[in-house]
Amino acid sequence: MHEMSIAQSLVAIIKEEMEKHGLTRLHAVRVCHGRLAALVPEALSFAFEACTLGTPLEGVQLEMQDIPIVLRCSQCATEFSPEEGDLFMPCPKCGEGLGHEVLQGKELYLDNIEAE
């Protein structure tokens, strides 16, 4: 349940960005998260709601986009995305199952905001 910490950091960044661009009304927020990043979208939405209650950011829905995992095979360097629910699948080209490098899937970032 680290979503509360994430929500608090998110609110701080949003406020900073709005100030920087002279914006006062927030309409939408888009967060991208890698599938390895163990983020529970519902928990983050709930935490964000709790953090923004009674503030100018109240009522804004988070849009969450998940980023698929991409691995590079430790043997033949083939890049592949493990199928849903099968993170530990062997390389589809050479069958190697060990030591793949994670190229994508650990991300957690604020992609953009919509505000005026």
């Binding site: 910490s5 994430i6 950091s9 998110l10 701080a12 960044i13 960005e17 661009h21 914006l23 967060v31 957690l108 970032y109 604020l110 992609d111 953009n112 905001i113 919509e114 505000a115 005026e116």
Partner: peptide
Amino acid sequence: MEVPVVRNILEAND
């Protein structure tokens, strides 16, 4: 307006 941000949410901790 849409403002591209692309900032690591845990940047303060990092």
